[in-house]
């Protein structure tokens, strides 16, 4: 299982967070000077849970329609913003600066 301290060592990490399966924020760590806060991370957790559910529906539908396997179960959702990207999987997530982000490393750390 990932831990928040480990996630904060990812390049450009601004925040690491853990949330319930419903999307409620359980724990978080913020880097110094980060302008994220617990309210935003709680909302972001809900965003990630909601989009993972939608992606799961899409993966199921796509696999049924095309016969292509390999999309389900969904193993991560990322939201890319102007300056930051968040990567989530399961009940953990990390927010990183785009200029430093290593997405593959983030997904590995969250697996």
């Amino acid at each position: 299982m990932p831990n928040l301290d480990q996630l904060m060592t990812l390049p450009g990490a601004l925040a690491a967070f853990e949330f319930s399966d419903k999307g409620e924020l359980l724990n978080s760590k913020l880097s110094e000077g980060s302008n994220l806060n617990e309210t935003a991370l709680d909302l972001l957790s809900h965003v990630c849970v909601a989009n993972t559910s939608i992606a799961t529906m899409q993966a199921r539908g796509w696999e049924n329609m095309t016969g292509d396997q390999g999309f389900y179960p969904v193993q991560g959702f990322s939201m890319i913003g102007l300056d930051w990207t968040t990567v989530t999987h399961g009940q953990f997530g990390v927010v990183m600066e785009n200029d430093k982000a290593d997405l593959e490393a983030a997904y590995s750390a969250l697996a």
Binding site: L14, L44, N51, A55, Q58, A59, G70, F71, Y72, P73, V74, Q75, G76, F77, S78, M79, I80, G81, L82, D83, W84, T85, T86, V87, H89, V95, E97, N98, L103, Y107
Partner: peptide, 12 residues
């Protein structure tokens, strides 16, 4: 920095 949104990724 997550606004405005520029994209998204889903990993299987």
């Amino acid at each position: 920095g997550l606004f405005p949104n520029k994209g998204w990724i889903v990993k299987g």
